[in-house]
Simulated assay, not measured.
Amino acid sequence: MTEGIKSNVQKLKAQKNAIILAHYYQRPEVQDIADVVGDSYYLSKVAKDCSQDIIVFCGVKFMAESAKILSPDKRVLLPAIDAGCPMAEMADAESVKAMRDKHPESKVVCYINSTAEVKAVSDVCCTSSNALKIIMGMDEEEIIFLPDKNLGNYMQKKLPHKKIILWDGFCITHKKVMPREITTAKELHPGIKVLAHPECEEEVLDLADFIGSTGEIINFATVNDNEKYLIVTEQGVLHELQKKNPGKKFYTPYGSMTCINMKKTRLEDVYDSLVNMRHEITIETEIRDRAYKALMNMHILGR
């Protein structure tokens, strides 16, 4: 049955001039059927530059919204329309405006894990892979960073000459990881390298050998010659890691780290979305135009 769905999706994709994009956190079978698999920054770049008429985004809502913002003339489909991001919902446009009023000399740097409305009241977006470069390249000494306080705090430690005003948001998947899980893994597997995403709590990051985005974690493990790695991010990334590194061993804290929203997309949803053009993303023109500037500033400053 799975092979039949895959075959039908491939046919539909060709007929409708569609491209399928999938985040590293998606189910393995969804990653396998995608034309492009990547982290948030890379997928946003592909969405901006691709020539296809239809983008099927296998991810969560803020990712599909970003694709629509960057490519307004394309039809963007989100196969699992209820795949949201709790972190993104922790910030709203009115609260961001109020924060700006309190800090009029600041610029707002908005993590891509945010709603279109929040992007629209921000100056520039960023991802975990380019946040450091973007903030370093800004003239302002005071930065409002939202919604992820852990990534913002990590940037503050890297850039002590800047004043970074943190939002009280977080990723519910990364927040669950406790320092004792890292120390236990090190005791069980002597010599293991700990690779962590900056959305983790500071106490966890302090125990890591490497901190980076999903794409950066994959690259590190691929070029490094260690045999064992503790991967402290959503377990979907293990699929790509194991494909690239069949001779290495990968573990996650307590055996798994799962984002339930990233796992909502099934092959059946991809097929249904394509065949019926279901769950199309729409954004009000005024919001899209303002959010577009913030996303384009990311691509300009993040080069």
Rank of each mutant, 00 (worst) to 15 (best):
M1P: 09
E3F: 12
V9M: 10
I20W: 09
A22P: 11
Y24I: 02
E29G: 02
Q31W: 12
Q31K: 12
D32S: 14
D35K: 02
D35C: 04
V37I: 10
D39I: 06
Y42I: 07
L43P: 10
S44T: 13
K48A: 05
D53E: 13
F62R: 08
M63F: 09
P72K: 04
P72L: 06
K74V: 12
V76W: 10
A80S: 15
I81F: 15
A83I: 05
P86I: 05
S95N: 15
V96Q: 05
K97T: 03
A98Y: 14
D101R: 14
P104L: 06
V108C: 02
Y111V: 04
S114W: 09
T115K: 14
A116W: 08
V121C: 05
T127R: 03
G137A: 01
E140R: 00
E140I: 08
I143E: 00
L146I: 03
D148T: 04
Y154H: 13
Y154M: 00
Q156R: 05
K157E: 13
P160M: 01
K162T: 01
I165W: 13
L166C: 04
I172V: 15
I172D: 15
T173Q: 07
T173M: 07
H174Q: 02
T183F: 09
G191M: 07
K193E: 15
K193D: 08
L195T: 07
A196P: 04
L205E: 02
A208V: 07
A208I: 04
E216C: 03
I218K: 04
F220I: 08
A221N: 06
T222I: 06
E227P: 00
V232A: 08
G236S: 09
G236F: 13
V237D: 01
H239A: 11
K243Q: 15
G255W: 07
M257V: 11
K263P: 01
R266A: 02
E268K: 11
D272C: 05
H279K: 12
E280V: 09
D289R: 14
A291M: 01
Y292A: 08
Y292C: 02
K293M: 12
K293G: 03
L301H: 13
L301C: 10
R303W: 00
